[in-house]
Simulated assay, not measured.
Amino acid sequence: MKAQFFSLSAIVLSIAVAELATFPAWGIPFEEIPVHRYVAHYDIDELEGVEKVIRANPNDANAYMHRGMIRSHSQEDFPGAIADFSRVIELDPNRAEAYNYRGTSYFWLKKFRQALEDYNQAIRLDPKLTIAYYNRGYVRIELGDKKGAIADFRQGAALSKQEGDMMSYEQALEIIQGLEQFQKPD
């Protein structure tokens, strides 16, 4: 029996690694991914309230972060989400989560180099931001850097284990195993 592997195209990067088991094979077409099923949902009705906060205080980084999450997770408006996360970064350049989420929006637009840059920055700012390692690993797969992806999944697994998140830890190990089986010798 062949081991199961996970398609990068089938993974929503800002969610818990726990959802990886729902995609049992490589190669699900990017356009067929049911994003709404696998991402944390933000109530679209919250959008009006968040926009009122932004109008009242255009320097409220938290409001832009919240709107960016609504745009990316509920509306799949990735360019709008990028604009909001960029505003958060402008207001609070040390906010690692904003880089991580903006990277995810770039990922969905297939702008893998920009996503990689954002994940690198998120990790520089917060070396314990576990999801950023997993996200960067997925982008590295898309960019053909399986060794780098394996290293990121190993680091993510180590952090997951430290956090007591054994489900993510075990799933990361499965991904590493799958990547190693596909690793071409240098």
Score class of each variant (00 low, 15 high):
Arg124Cys: 07
Gly68His: 00
Val88Asp: 00
Val35Ser: 10
Tyr106Lys: 03
Glu76Asn: 06
Val12His: 13
Glu117Gly: 10
His41Phe: 13
Ala25Gly: 12
Glu31Pro: 05
Ala158Arg: 12
Phe23Asn: 13
Gln183Met: 07
Ser86Trp: 00
Lys161Ala: 05
Tyr106Ile: 00
Glu48Val: 10
Arg37Ile: 13
Pro24Cys: 07
Ala16Glu: 11
Ala172Asn: 08
Glu90Val: 02
Phe5Gln: 15
Ala25Gln: 13
Glu163Gln: 14
Tyr138Gln: 13
Met1Gln: 15
Asp186Glu: 10
Ser74Gln: 01
Gln183Phe: 03
Arg37Asp: 12
Ala40Asp: 09
Ile82Met: 00
Ile28Lys: 15
Glu180Asn: 03
Ile54Phe: 04
Met167His: 13
Glu51Gly: 09
Arg55Asn: 13
Ala96Gln: 04
Asn57Gln: 07
Ala158Met: 06
Arg124His: 14
Met166Asp: 10
Leu47Gly: 00
Pro34Ala: 12
Gln183Leu: 08
Thr22Asn: 15
Ala10Trp: 12
Asp84Cys: 02
Ala96Asn: 06
Arg55Asp: 11
Ile44Trp: 08
Phe107His: 06
Lys111Leu: 11
Tyr169Asn: 04
Pro79Ile: 02
Ala122Phe: 05
Ile70Val: 05
Gly144Met: 03
His73Ala: 10
Thr104Asp: 07
Ala122Pro: 09
Gln121Tyr: 05
Ala16Trp: 00
Thr22Tyr: 12
Gly144Asn: 09
Ala3Lys: 15
Gln75Thr: 08
Phe30Pro: 11
Tyr133Glu: 03
Ile11Gln: 14
Gln162Arg: 12
Ile141Lys: 07
Leu179Lys: 01
Arg136Phe: 05
Lys161Tyr: 09
Leu47His: 02
Gly103Phe: 01
Arg55Thr: 11
Ala18Val: 14
Arg87Phe: 02
Pro29Ala: 09
